[in-house]
Design a protein around this nucleic acid. Structure first.
Lengths: 201, 201
DNA sequence: TATTATACTGTATATAATCACAGTAATCAA
DNA sequence: TTGATTACTGTGATTATATACAGTATAATA
């Protein structure tokens, strides 16, 4: 799936906003009108290009037959157990997907991670909760981070960080801090926790 | 907003499932085909009736121009402060709405209620969390209930219940139990807590 | 240098889709 | 028993929409 050009991205965004605001996809004429094209065919050709790159599907013959294939449309992946070695978002780790519903949380959720263990109960994060992870937010002291240490993924509060020592704090008095020397052991920050979902059942 | 007939409900459900599965509303012909009508006009007339009852809007002249006006499409209301007196779901209590995203929680969410105070921290419910409330689940001892005592709405664990005593337990050792005699004081169970959303920001 | 992709205009047409009009039939309330 | 609502069939006009074909122009790629 290659990248879209700026113009193509504009059109994809227009389709998304049309779906969101009006509940249905736009017609070629709608697109042309909104973006100022004088021919609906300009929209047609853009749509073909976007389809070719895999971001949408076009239903032949159907009016407004534009279907999104974007990550947002598929839903946000829920990661259960992380298989040793590979990246967190690898296909085999995806337990299910849940519809993206913005307005719920103020930050973008790249994926949900199912919490194992009780090391964070003192900040109200319990086993089996789903934490919403944002990959791009800056990592700050005091924030709850998702870190990979060697092959293990863990959720902890970042207590302190320097070139030769990272301290991760478990929010449960029964656990002790994890101290890592990044010059010796591998530590990768996968993201920060920006939200939480819990299912009582 | 009057009730729909069975047939009209079927058509409304079909529109919803079309939107969910295909991402766009059906045409009159689609509806006729699916439900076995020999004339697309049958669908047209049903749509008019459903529109008249307020459940959808029809965009004149637009293909697939069917817009849902249902509660699900509007999103789940978020209740902040409950104004004294009236029902929880009164319009003035609705802070905003957030898109319904099923698959997230196993039970139906009728509304979200913003948590005030720290009386439930020991079960991981914090101030400003949004708890998902289901109105119809049976109230059981041990479940977290939303109760209205007089004019106040509170979230507590139901400890015990009998004809002359209801005990509500705060999940925070600094608070004491609330004991109510339903023969003397008014207590209404508004629902049970079936989910939780937290925004870290 | 030829080719491909991008980004359009402009015209035209087949068909997809809405929607009006004319009926039939059953049920229910006034 | 008249009228309204529900639940359709059947036909057809109008228009909304997708989409083919023919161009123009620019930039990037092989």
């Amino acid at each position: 799936m290659k990248g879209l050009t700026d113009r193509q991205q504009e059109i994809l965004d227009l389709i998304k906003s049309n779906l969101e605001n009006n509940g249905l996809p736009p017609t070629r004429a709608d697109i042309a009108r909104t973006l100022g094209f004088k021919s609906p065919n300009a929209a047609e050709q853009h749509l073909r290009a976007i389809e070719k790159k895999g971001f949408i599907s076009i239903l032949a013959g159907a009016s407004r037959g534009i279907i999104l294939n974007t990550e947002e449309a598929l839903g946000i992946p829920v990661i259960g157990l992380v298989a040793a070695g590979g990246p967190i978002l690898a296909q085999e780790n995806i337990e299910k997907r849940i519809p993206q519903a913005h307005n719920i949380l103020s930050n973008k959720i790249d994926y949900y991670l199912r919490v194992k263990g009780d090391s964070m109960v003192d900040v109200g994060i319990y086993e089996n909760d789903l934490i919403g992870v944002n990959k791009k937010n800056p990592i700050k002291v005091g924030s709850i981070v998702i870190a990979r240490i060697g092959e293990e993924v863990t959720v902890k509060t970042l207590e302190s960080i320097s070139s030769n020592q990272v301290v991760l704090k478990a929010e449960n008095s029964e656990y002790s801090n994890i101290e890592i020397n990044p010059e010796k052991d591998e530590i990768v920050f996968e993201g920060t926790c920006v939200g939480l979902l819990r299912d009582f059942s």
